[in-house]
Nucleic acid binder design. Structure first.
Lengths: 208, 208
DNA sequence: GTCTATATTCAGATAGAC
DNA sequence: GTCTATCTGAATATAGAC
């Protein structure tokens, strides 16, 4: 009895995960309005009506996608800046983690980016609740380092904005980068060079 | 005769400019698919059908919007890197110009960003023709500086990607920045601090 | 050039049988 | 939970009178 229910729930979880994974692709490629539930359903092998049995509305599915994106992102990025260690080492780890996310989850990054660029009409409140406090904590860490004289007195907020922008662009703007590099895909080498260049800029800027 | 025609054409130009300006707003806020021609027409005081007399299709209007966005961007950004002068001064001017564009034309930046994030399905070819050569020229300037020993041997390509990402984010991600800063709008002061921080990072990185 | 009217397609969502 | 069938609204686009 319990095991049958458990198995059913695992199947459901797996199915939902499949749907969400496909939804990320479609939302990333077309934006919220441009995405069609029918397309997502077809790609995942469900009827549109059946998909809507699991996700009652397109918005509900979209919110679930954003929730999952943010969960994954928080799991990787939370608490990096708060770790002990030399500022240079912490910043290196932070840049590396954020670039790795861009490389491993470019679609997730793009869905989030499009939502923000559109003015965060559906996810603004969640960003305020879940992202902003984390960002502020990271900024506070930078400020503490400055107060303690461990790094140069840079503008902590804009330093973080800069790190975010530089690392995230390797997911969001990879299409343009590929055109500039004349390459079909960004390769491991590109991400290494990116990491070196970004790290160099950040560490040079905080040099006392 | 000729003056009547001229006047008519000026009116038409003005009307088209009004439509394009409004279209930028709507495309930036909703993406290509999410934008509706009817909404654009209404906001500009035309009937939908009348608008489609001037722009035969939604895609044509969208392409026109992107063309105008790119024209404006090229008018400001082309040839900055190619100017004579100390690398530090040229880079300062480049960063300032790009930040000014983000500040003065955030909607233009967002429309372009969404197109690129979506994979540039309609504007990819134009980007290849009009943007990529310019970017490559700028990168070549950086490489020449390195070869001449005027700046440190950084990765020229990724340095440019970094500058683009940092400056552009003040248009594209301003919604998130405003939430972090707890402010309704980005102010002149924010852009000054951004410019200082970005310039510091770039100049520190090229320091020999 | 501008209007009324309409064709056509497509999307999200719901009802109800099984 | 899954299916067939359908409703409803919106959006692009076109036809044709004035």
């Amino acid at each position: 009895m319990a095991s049958a229910k458990l198995r059913r729930e695992m199947n459901r979880d797996r199915l939902e995960a499949d749907v969400v994974a496909e939804a990320v692709r479609v939302f990333a490629a077309n934006g919220y309005e441009g995405a069609s539930v029918a397309a997502i359903a077809e790609n995942v092998g469900l009827s549109k009506q059946n998909l809507m049995y699991y996700f009652p509305s397109k918005q509900a599915l979209y919110q679930r996608v954003l929730d999952d994106v943010l969960d994954e992102w928080l799991a990787r990025m939370a608490n990096i800046a708060e770790q002990d260690g030399e500022p240079a080492d912490v910043l290196r780890a932070y840049i590396r983690a954020k670039l790795a996310f861009s490389r491993e989850h470019p679609l997730a990054s793009r869905v989030y980016a499009m939502e923000v660029i559109s003015g965060a009409p559906v996810y603004g409140e969640k960003i305020r609740e879940r992202v902003v406090p984390l960002v502020r904590k990271d900024i506070d860490v930078f400020k503490r380092w400055i107060a303690e004289g461990r790094i140069a007195p840079v503008n902590a907020t804009h330093l973080l904005f800069a790190i975010w922008a530089m690392t995230q662009s390797y997911a969001d703007f990879s299409t343009q980068m590929k055109l500039v590099l004349g390459r079909g895909e960004l390769a491991a080498q590109d991400f290494h060079e990116a990491e070196d260049t970004i790290t160099r800029m950040v560490l040079a800027a905080i040099q006392r």
